[in-house]
Simulated assay, not measured.
Amino acid sequence: MTEKLLNHLTEGPASAPPMVLGPSLGTSYALWDKVAPELSVTHRVVRWDLPGHGGSAAGLIGPGAAVGDLADLVLTLADSLGIGRFAYAGVSLGGAVGLHLAVHHPERVSSLAVICSSSHFNGSRSWEERAAQVRAEGMDRLVESADARWFTPGFTVPRLVQDHRDADPEAYAACCDALAAFDIRERLAEISAPTLLVAGRDDPATPPAHLREIADAVPGAALVEIPGASHLAVAQCPEAVLTALRAHFDGGAKRGMEVRREVLGDAHVDRAQDRQSPFTARFQDFISRYAWGEIWTDPTLSRRERSMITLTALVAHGHYDELAMHVRAARRNGLTPDEIGAVLLQTAVYCGVPAANSAFAAAQRVLAEEEG
């Protein structure tokens, strides 16, 4: 792993839509252990470590760092993985990184979830004092109060407390510098990505009022409060956080299913759903989410144009059963029988006469059924 990149863990299918998960100050990507594997069923999940935390090199940031510096490191990581546009969820400092990305790099953030975080962290003084403390004394004294700052009484996650103890003091202090300088309140209204705010009702560090302030400023944002959760709600109440994130991020699958029904018809989609089994469920989700939720919803091409392209591709590969289905879809998308015939005639030139002959036979059968 090159020291120019944040340490990270990638989970889920490479073909799935990407999702980037950001950590809280003092933790590693282990913060997401109870949530990321579930999200990776439908997404390519990338969770990363802050500089000097987990496996990330401390030298990635220095004194006087800003949240924008951390956001740049996240973009560099995404670029190295071939990820352009991604969903993003972050906790506390990780959530601040998400807000910065949504404001300054809106073209990269498809949707956003900000968890137990804030658009400002109560001014600079307390963070400057904490930075000075860890630079002078190291992490041990601060770690003693980790459970009280992170969880409700009686709850702990030893792995995360150990991550806190193992964090590099200089890098931790630089992250404190970033929190001290962070205040994005005046830019919140510029956020265009669909945004979810998740608050822990018992969070002393970023109380629900901080998340409500963001929700009130970001157009169309939603707010969920989790009872019994403190600052690290992702670790303390993973099921509740997962439910909220799924409802927010899986909107593409829902829209994809709507488009799939509009183009192919309810009868066909219902048959496909009835035949679905646990073995084929992820494939059906992939079709709805990727083919119909991302490709067919892209406004660059009209549905008429997409039908023409699809017919041609199916003829080229000899998929005549599916061609019949897409002839019906083409009619539903506004193509006339003459236009469908013209598309198939074009395939005779570029895909071959035998392929076009079979395609005309399949299309004629479908069009005759429709006339009947």
Rank of each mutant, 00 (worst) to 15 (best):
residue 66 A to N: 11
residue 218 V to F: 03
residue 164 H to S: 13
residue 178 A to V: 11
residue 95 G to T: 05
residue 270 D to L: 06
residue 249 F to E: 09
residue 313 A to K: 09
residue 182 F to Q: 06
residue 44 R to K: 03
residue 268 H to M: 07
residue 217 A to I: 10
residue 73 L to I: 05
residue 53 H to G: 06
residue 349 V to R: 08
residue 225 E to V: 05
residue 241 V to W: 08
residue 333 N to W: 03
residue 143 V to A: 05
residue 63 P to I: 01
residue 7 N to M: 08
residue 201 R to F: 06
residue 74 V to W: 00
residue 296 W to Y: 10
residue 69 D to V: 13
residue 173 A to D: 12
residue 369 E to R: 10
residue 251 G to W: 04
residue 365 R to D: 15
residue 68 G to D: 05
residue 330 A to C: 10
residue 140 D to V: 11
residue 181 A to L: 11
residue 83 I to Y: 09
residue 253 A to F: 13
residue 313 A to H: 08
residue 193 A to I: 10
residue 126 S to A: 12
residue 343 V to Y: 01
residue 98 G to R: 06
residue 95 G to Q: 05
residue 228 G to D: 01
residue 288 S to W: 07
residue 119 S to L: 03
residue 165 R to G: 07
residue 71 A to E: 00
residue 319 H to S: 12
residue 206 T to H: 01
residue 246 R to E: 14
residue 112 L to I: 05
residue 67 V to W: 04
residue 71 A to F: 01
residue 146 A to H: 13
residue 224 V to C: 02
residue 356 A to F: 02
residue 220 G to M: 00
residue 14 A to P: 15
residue 361 A to T: 14
residue 309 I to R: 08
residue 17 P to L: 00
residue 163 D to E: 04
residue 259 V to E: 06
residue 24 S to Q: 09
residue 34 K to A: 15
residue 270 D to P: 12
residue 323 L to S: 06
residue 187 R to T: 14
residue 239 E to M: 12
residue 141 R to V: 12
residue 320 Y to P: 11
residue 257 M to N: 13
residue 181 A to Y: 08
residue 336 T to E: 02
residue 158 P to I: 01
residue 69 D to Y: 10
residue 8 H to D: 11
residue 272 A to M: 14
residue 86 F to W: 00
residue 84 G to I: 04
residue 92 S to M: 02
residue 249 F to R: 04
residue 297 T to G: 08
residue 194 P to W: 02
residue 60 L to I: 05
residue 155 F to Y: 13
residue 22 G to C: 14
residue 305 E to D: 15
residue 371 E to V: 13
residue 70 L to P: 15
residue 143 V to I: 02
residue 183 D to Q: 09
residue 248 H to E: 10
residue 162 Q to E: 15
residue 115 I to E: 04
residue 368 A to Y: 09
residue 306 R to M: 11
residue 199 A to F: 06
residue 293 G to A: 01
residue 153 P to W: 00
residue 359 A to I: 02
residue 371 E to K: 11
